[in-house]
Design a protein around this nucleic acid. Sequence first.
DNA 1: TGACCTACCTAACTGTCGTTAGGTAGGTTG
DNA 2: CAACCTACCTAACGACAGTTAGGTAGGTCA
Lengths: 155, 155
Amino acid sequence: MKAGSLYYHFASKDDLLTEILRRGIAVMNVAFDEADAIQAGSPADRVAAHVRAHLAALYENGPYTAAHITTFRTAPAAVRDEIVKLRDAYEARWTTVLKSLQRDGALSADVNINLARLALFAVMNSSVEWFDQTRGNLDDFAAIITRQFWTGVAV
Amino acid sequence: MKAGSLYYHFASKDDLLTEILRRGIAVMNVAFDEADAIQAGSPADRVAAHVRAHLAALYENGPYTAAHITTFRTAPAAVRDEIVKLRDAYEARWTTVLKSLQRDGALSADVNINLARLALFAVMNSSVEWFDQTRGNLDDFAAIITRQFWTGVAV
DNA sequence: TGACCTACCTAACTGTCGTTAGGTAGGTTG
DNA sequence: CAACCTACCTAACGACAGTTAGGTAGGTCA
């Protein structure tokens, strides 16, 4: 397909971009749903399931992920405003999970949930830049990230 | 200064970009030096000093930081190759610190130092997108990040 | 004073990007 | 079969980014 043909399907390049970003987030929500269905296990296991689902969705949808990472920051305000709503909703689902763990006493009461979530997102999302799925096992990787998030690196 | 005048000082736009990125990393190294001079305190304090220095350098050099974040990924290969060397060297300094803490028994022996460093960098660097320096205290923020890195969020 | 250097400027060229108008091959439907 | 729809294509446009050549104001130095 040549560049001009794009306009048969989308009104503008920004419309295309919005749709791509929208689908990328939809994929993440589906992954979250699947992880949410797994209610068994310890609190750490529950977080691990979500981390694993988030990472898998990230890696299995390379083009969507790449588009999000490379374009979101520089996207026009109209596009960002549209997508930020969806991102916020996805992030709110994580906040809900973490808050419930805190209510149950599994997660320290003096932890700022928003900061914790942002930190976890930072690690997961940045990993697309350095984690090589062909070299490392995704389950192991999710476990390590969760472990580091949960108990830290100290002895 | 108009756009054309740039070429009195730099051979090309890429040359300018390389120089900007280079200076940004130089600033980070200076900050690291200063934090390195502080040898007192617990291992966690030592990490906290470096985290604080890294964050401060990031926020005090907004333009360099912004340039790095927005352009590095999309920069031409020639520019990236040049800068990656400097980034690697800076990251190696962190690895050295973490390894020495592990050797001293302060940092868990079964932690993968490279992953730990990448996770810490992810949190610190991504924070420029959501941490508002005018609303939160930088020292507090550095302490929270270090605490989360060091002992995690679990009870 | 006159030659020269520094740090800009203007104006123009080239290439690329987002977009549009109009054309067309191939399949679908009455 | 004819009319039509779908999903592309080509060719062209205006705007803008990277770059260059040549000009110029103001300071430096013999």
